[in-house]
Nucleic acid binder design. Structure first.
Lengths: 226, 226
DNA sequence: CGGTGGGTTGAGGTATTTCAAGGCTCGTGG
DNA sequence: CCACGAGCCTTGAAATACCTCAACCCACCG
């Protein structure tokens, strides 16, 4: 019943509002499916396309030589990702679950942008939103405790994929850990603490857990600007 | 002799290249001086101006309710800061040392941007550069050891304010610590280790230290994408 | 000169990591 | 249709990187 909360294709794609030209057919775009775990693009690859999640979930990350990983963001239905100013991608992007994605040729976007300032403004707005997210995430990574990080994560997911109140998390504990800069065991322990304090419930024991949170209670634990 | 390396007003301001209109006098701008420690703008204040460092150094930070601080970036001669997409600043900005700053009315920039796509493109480019910096910093804050963080910091400063090879750091240990998400004692210990390993020299014991680094050696210690 | 604002270093404490074991779910193939 | 392995999650116990607290030093300034 709750299984597809997060991948609901009925959700209104945000891009339509953001980049009017796309819906006017002035920019060439295609659609593509990636199954869980597939790489969408790699770090330092040429950024020939930008992407929009139609349904599913995507993680973007950086990897260190010894395997340490930092996930910079999760992208959910409606989100744009892979937008770069330079010629190369700065993250690797992978589908977390089976995911449908719209592809837009960058070249075609550039062409339209030359004559249409609204398009560039949209790109600027999206880049600014990514920047604001990264800035808040720096505070989390630099200064918050593990409990605060996990509370902030749940609040973010609550805000982004819950009209009703139940969250079906598409990502596993390792993904959450690499997003929050802690280990998967610490994530698990923090979730247990929150559950014991009644700020969190697991509905059903099915692999991808469905979660109900108490946003006001969690907000008291973190210092979230969002 | 090295005292003012970092605040050299002779350095070519980067803005001239970035925002041509400013040098054409089509955007109203003024100049202002802030002494060390002064606040330039505060978190959640209206973003009526954008700023360019002419000489000196600025830190921008977020503060938690209990005083924990995360510095998002240091801005040096030539850098633009305070550029927001929304109406409010998302950081507090303070002068680290005595600093000269150029102010540009946002309203006046907006007006020009309506007719000049080059301006919006410049804003997009600058925002993207800030984003790229934040993305790299997330990896540092989430996954690097204290030694790797300090090495990365020194490399960044080396790249940004050293044509010659000596760095006069404008910020103190607490600022560095809050930028790197560690404590000032840990910064100090890491610097001592680097010094013992010959990757770093202090020139002169004067309050604001001058530092000479071995970039290749430091690079081996971190995983820096920059 | 005495105080203040850095900075370094040591010793001990602690949050988080690491290592390890065990349980649950689900898909697959005998 | 059941057995089994793989993936995921949780929990415990021990190790450790970093933090906290504290002492001390030095440079600078009124």
């Amino acid at each position: 019943m709750f299984t597809n909360l997060n991948t609901d294709p009925g959700r209104k794609p945000r891009l339509v509002g953001e980049l009017g030209a796309l819906s006017h057919g002035r920019v060439s775009s295609g659609e593509f499916k990636y199954s869980a775990g597939m790489e969408i693009f790699g770090d330092t690859e040429p950024a020939d396309y930008i992407y929009q999640v139609i349904a599913g979930a995507v993680r973007i990350h950086k990897l260190m030589a010894d395997g340490r990983r930092q996930i910079g963001a999760f992208h959910l239905a409606g989100d744009i990702f892979g937008l770069e100013n330079g010629d190369l991608h700065r993250f690797t992007a992978e589908a977390i679950v089976d995911t449908r994605v719209r592809l837009i040729r960058r070249e075609s976007l550039e062409r339209v942008a030359n004559t249409d300032t609204a398009i560039i403004r949209s790109l600027l707005k999206m880049t600014s939103e990514n920047l604001a997210h990264a800035e808040n995430h720096m505070l989390l990574l630099g200064r918050k405790t593990s409990l605060e990080r996990v509370a902030a994560f749940l609040l973010e997911m609550h805000r982004r994929l819950t009209p009703e109140g139940a969250i079906a998390l598409p990502m596993n504990r390792r993904d959450i850990a690499d997003y929050l800069g802690i280990t998967l065991e610490t994530v698990s322990r923090a979730l247990s603490v929150l559950r014991k304090n009644g700020l969190l419930k697991f509905l059903g024991q099915t692999q991808r857990q469905i979660v109900v949170v108490d946003p006001a209670g969690l907000a008291r634990l973190t210092d979230n600007p969002e």
